[in-house]
């Protein structure tokens, strides 16, 4: 399969601050690519560079075959972009918004008409063309924003936290839409805070403080980066329990997940009784459950970010 995006030592500095620090990776054509990282990790800066609106300090990237450094305008013709703010005009109607975005991409006549029908269809807005965009619910706005972002049939679409501030059902519907785009051959490059959404991605990379710290499919990330077994403990007095577990020689890492504790264990670990016996030394702690679990992406990322801190 061809590469849709090839990134080579991409770096962006703002004064003394390095926002993106020499990252390199490839994105394949037609895949859903998850680009993850904490706030301020450099996600938006990277996307802006890939969209050709910010020039890199060092390095380069080929987007749809064009260099972002030398031919940013050709890059722009081949991509769509949707920001976390759903850049629609609230004081325009649905149809006026579609006409505008079609217009700035040079669509007119029958092509605009055909694409307009398509956008209305995916946003479930047929017959509601004359509604003011301000009156639409968040989920619908989001679908309309995506529709307008790809109205010119780009090869690649960048979605910068497209699901922030949208209810779970709308999020689910939105991901169905992303899958449809991908199966039409459009490469979807998406950033998100929701790790369960990252599971939908074919490939994922994780960046922290501008550096790439992990890459692969969701399955690869779980097996390659998390070698230790993972146990989930459900008990009372979680804080005290965590303090006890942290200092045990068989425990590698601890973290709190909701009301539960996750620990990864090393080769000093023999059985779950080991856990139970150290915890029961404190009379205030009552254990309801200890069992081995399959790691989630969240486990992997917390592990990776902890490791990166050290």
């Amino acid at each position: 399969m061809m590469n849709s995006i090839t990134i080579n030592n991409l770096t962006k500095r703002f004064g003394n601050f390095t926002s993106v620090d020499s990252i390199s990776f490839d994105v394949k054509e037609g895949e859903i690519f998850g680009f993850l990282g904490a706030n301020g990790a450099g996600k938006t800066t990277t996307i802006k560079m890939l969209c050709g609106i910010l020039s890199p300090t060092e390095g380069d990237a080929l987007v749809a075959g064009f260099s972002i450094k030398k031919e940013p305008n050709k890059v722009k013709l081949n991509i769509g972009y949707m920001s976390q703010r759903f850049s629609l005009y609230n004081d325009l109607t649905v149809e006026e918004n579609i006409n505008f975005f079609g217009g700035i991409y040079g669509l007119n006549g029958s092509r605009l008409l055909e694409r307009k029908q398509w956008v209305l269809k995916i946003a479930n807005l047929n017959g509601k063309e004359n509604l003011l965009t301000a009156s639409l619910p968040g989920g619908i706005k989001q679908r309309l924003a995506l529709g307008t972002a790809v109205i010119h049939r780009p090869k690649i679409v960048f979605l910068d936290e497209p699901t922030s501030g949208v209810d779970p059902i709308s999020r689910r519907n939105f991901w169905d839409l992303i899958h449809n785009l991908s199966s039409d051959g459009i490469t979807v490059f998406v950033t998100t805070h929701y790790l369960e959404e990252a599971e939908f991605c074919n490939n994922i990379i994780l960046i922290n403080a501008g550096k790439l710290i992990a890459e692969g499919s969701s399955k690869e990330l779980k097996t390659n980066y998390l070698k230790n077994d993972l146990y989930e403990i459900e008990c009372s007095n979680v804080v005290d329990a965590l303090e006890i577990l942290e200092v045990q020689n068989f425990v590698e890492e601890t973290s709190i997940f909701g009301n539960n504790i996750h620990i990864s264990v090393n080769r000093n670990f023999s059985s779950t009784q080991q856990i139970e016996s150290v915890l029961l030394s404190n009379k205030d702690i009552k254990i309801s459950r200890v069992n081995k679990i399959v790691p989630t992406l969240e486990d992997v990322f917390i592990h990776l970010l902890e490791r990166d801190k050290k």
């Binding site: 305008n73 769509g80 972009y81 920001s83 850049s87 629609l88 975005f101």
Partner: peptide
Amino acid sequence: KGTIEQINVSS
């Protein structure tokens, strides 16, 4: 309103 971003990424 942030709508300028959408215009910036267009050609």
